[in-house]
Simulated scan of single mutants.
Amino acid sequence: MSDHTSVATLLLELDGLVVRHVERQADGSRLVRLETADEAARACPSCGVFATRVKGVVRTRPRDLPGGSSDLWLEWVKRRWYCDEPG
């Protein structure tokens, strides 16, 4: 399968995520790095304008997603966007 979004959807049953990297850890477990791919995540919740500047990046380790187990760890990289609209 060549579409990365489809891989994330198939693996986790969640749309809007992209698998960026899979890494085998020293203990044999796998770390899957995910990113939000949905462009709608850039829309300001107040005014709806799409942001162009990243305010910050948050990395989370969700444990309640399908596929999470003791040998599969998920790291989700979420960008926080800055709205440049003066209003």
Score class of each variant (00 low, 15 high):
Phe50Trp: 01
Gly67Tyr: 09
Gly68Thr: 10
Lys55Pro: 00
Gly87Val: 15
Asp27Gln: 08
Gly16Gln: 03
Leu11Thr: 10
His21Glu: 15
Asp71Glu: 13
Pro62Gly: 11
Thr52Pro: 00
Asp15Tyr: 01
Asp64Trp: 06
Val18Trp: 02
Ser70Phe: 03
Asp84Ser: 12
Val57His: 01
Asp38Phe: 05
Glu75Met: 12
Arg63Leu: 12
Arg24Ser: 08
Val18Tyr: 02
Asp84Thr: 10
Arg53Asn: 09
Val58Thr: 14
Gly68Ala: 09
Val18Pro: 00
Val19Ile: 14
Val54Gly: 03
Thr52Asn: 09
Val7Cys: 08
Lys78Ala: 12
Val18Gln: 04
Val49Ser: 09
Gly28Ile: 15
Ser70Ile: 04
Val19Trp: 02
Asp27Ser: 09
Ala26Met: 07
Gly68Ile: 00
Glu39Val: 14
Thr52Met: 04
Met1Lys: 12
Gln25Phe: 01
Val54Glu: 13
Arg61Asn: 13
Glu13Pro: 00
Leu14Arg: 12
Arg24Glu: 15
Trp73Val: 11
Ala40Tyr: 01
His21Tyr: 01
Pro45Gln: 15
Ala8Gln: 05
Ser29Cys: 05
Cys47Ile: 10
Cys47Asp: 04
Thr9Tyr: 02
Thr36Ser: 03
Ala40His: 09
Gly87Trp: 07
Leu65Trp: 15
Val49Ile: 13
Leu72Thr: 14
Glu13Ile: 01
Glu13Asn: 14
Arg42Asp: 02
Gly68Val: 07
Trp73Gly: 03
Gly67Glu: 08
Thr52Lys: 11
Arg42Leu: 10
Leu10Ser: 15
Ser69Phe: 00
Arg80Pro: 00
Ala37Thr: 04
Ser70Pro: 01
Trp73Phe: 03
Val22Glu: 00
Lys78Asp: 10
Val57Ala: 10
Ala41Lys: 04
Ser29Met: 06
Ser69Gly: 15
